[in-house]
């Protein structure tokens, strides 16, 4: 599957790279859905012998291919929320030099990066590669509710119901983009929703 090229944007918006295998005695790879393809691309038997893969399929059929890589540890989680306790436990045990690889949707990479940062790993030391859906994790600035997988702009907040403009302003701490009321100055005047990158 070809990778989506995000248009140039403001400086708070994350920029993702392309995973590459790095030197290290321990590797943690966290992926969802099509992120599996990025792991499959860099996997070698040597690397996999030192790698813990945490994978959330979200309906994509890559789990068997990842398992067949024979990673040192493999976990398939039904959702990010179900996996996050395990991610914290793994990071808590991490030693200096652990290599962290995040790939898949922005929501997955953002949240996992936040966990790694809280464990003391600088965000600049974490590799990321976007794959799959371009949907966003978004926080409503008004009610603070976070909605996963927002695909359209404007978007109705799933918590408070306000019609939100999906900004490019992004918080690493929240792992979310900001949504701001779009019709505050003209109530009811809400443009028809369209895809965020249309």
């Amino acid at each position: 599957m070809s990778k989506f090229e995000f248009p140039p944007s403001i400086k708070s918006r994350p920029v993702y790279g392309t995973l590459e295998a790095r030197q290290g005695k321990a590797h943690l790879m966290i992926a969802d859905a099509e992120g599996a393809e990025a792991i499959l691309r860099i996997a070698t038997p040597d690397l996999m012998a030192k790698t813990h893969i945490i994978y959330i399929p979200r309906g994509a059929g890559f789990a068997d291919q990842l398992r067949a890589l024979n990673p040192a540890q493999f976990y398939e989680g039904p959702s990010y929320a179900a996996s996050v306790q395990r991610i914290r436990r793994v990071l808590q045990d991490a030693h200096m030099g652990l290599q962290v690889y995040l790939t898949g949707t922005e929501g997955l990479m953002g949240q996992a990066q936040n966990e790694a940062m809280q464990a003391g790993i600088p965000h600049t030391a974490i590799q990321t590669e976007h794959r799959g859906s371009v949907a966003r994790r978004m926080q409503c600035v008004h009610c603070k509710g976070i909605t996963e997988d927002v695909e359209t702009d404007p978007f109705q907040c799933s918590h408070c119901g306000l019609n939100l403009f999906v900004r490019d302003h992004y918080s690493r701490r929240l792992a979310a983009y900001q949504g701001v009321c779009i019709d505050a100055e003209d109530p009811g005047n809400v443009p028809a929703p369209k895809g965020i990158y249309e």
Partner: peptide, 15 residues
């Protein structure tokens, strides 16, 4: 502040 806390100088001025 709640959204921007933790950002660096360029990030919080991004917009």
């Amino acid at each position: 502040l709640d959204f921007d806390i933790g950002m660096n100088f360029f990030e919080w001025h991004a917009p």
